[in-house]
Amino acid sequence: MPTKRQMPTVRLRRLAAELRRLRKGAELTREHVSEQTGINAATLYRIETARVRPQQRTLIALLNLYEVGDPQRGEIVALSRGAGSQRWLRPYHSELPEEYTAYISFEAEARAVRNYESLFIPGLLQTEGYARAVIKGVLPMASTREIEQRVQARIERQEVLAKPDPLNLWAIMDEAALRRVVGGPEVMHEQMQRLMASATEPHMTIQVIPFGAGAHAGMPGSFVLMSFPEVEDPEIIYIDSMAGDLFLEAEADVRRYGAIFDNLRAVALSPDDTSNLIATLTKEIQ
């Protein structure tokens, strides 16, 4: 039976980046490290790309080779011990897709999230009724149990917006997300009220790109750009598509999606005008 692939965590990515930095600082290639430590070059690649957490003896061998002393050595060892922990996850999340649980873990530790949605209300702003209707529609073959697990996970994710130091959320959506009546008028009316209330929160910014804006940079699809409290933790992009979930963290990708989001902010209605539009559409649903 194949070993289940370890999904990345913020700490695992930080550990991988630190080990890459140390190796390059020692002016060693992966092949040189392999020759001097006996660590397989493929294994080293997986460690340095946050595919796996290094075993203790492997980590110590690398730190010895890179001549890392205390206190840095102790900090790296401690980081490694916690690198496999996705602290936010509930026990039942083991039944959710691996990429989704990784996303939940990243989101729980993020400082800020920039989210563009072309067809849906952003997950962090969805009501339970809307979430259930969306999940049923998107996953028509899912069992009732699977649907309820996903609904529960989506609602629990929203705790990041209510904690003492809440996540900063900047959500932009196409007007189509507001116009599509998901779950019926009652569900949609409740959802629109949630949006209006969320728009008044100081740590949330909500904008809508009106139909009148014409073609825009977000039309190819939705994406999430997450940033983290520590400077050492690079931003990460998450894309959810029918072809599968995708994480991007290359600097070029982060710059490109950051520029796209800035462009979308510019063509969208202002937060105040967005609130007025949501209020108007809410009255129409009644």
Results as ranks from 00 to 15, higher is better:
6 Q>N: 07
6 Q>D: 07
12 L>A: 10
18 E>Q: 10
20 R>N: 09
21 R>F: 04
45 Y>I: 04
50 A>P: 01
52 V>K: 10
62 L>R: 10
62 L>E: 14
66 Y>G: 08
76 I>P: 02
80 S>G: 11
82 G>R: 12
86 Q>A: 15
93 H>M: 15
102 A>Q: 05
103 Y>E: 05
103 Y>L: 13
106 F>D: 01
108 A>K: 04
114 R>Y: 11
117 E>I: 07
123 G>M: 08
134 V>S: 01
135 I>H: 03
135 I>S: 06
144 T>R: 04
147 I>W: 00
150 R>I: 01
151 V>I: 07
153 A>C: 01
154 R>C: 04
156 E>G: 00
157 R>P: 13
161 L>E: 10
171 A>G: 09
172 I>C: 13
173 M>E: 11
175 E>D: 06
178 L>R: 05
181 V>E: 02
185 P>W: 03
185 P>R: 12
188 M>S: 00
212 G>M: 02
218 G>W: 05
226 M>T: 10
228 F>N: 02
236 I>F: 11
237 I>R: 06
238 Y>N: 11
239 I>V: 15
245 D>T: 12
247 F>K: 09
248 L>A: 08
249 E>N: 14
257 Y>E: 05
265 R>H: 08
272 D>A: 14
274 T>R: 04
275 S>H: 10
275 S>I: 02
276 N>L: 06
280 T>E: 14
281 L>K: 08
283 K>W: 01
284 E>I: 01
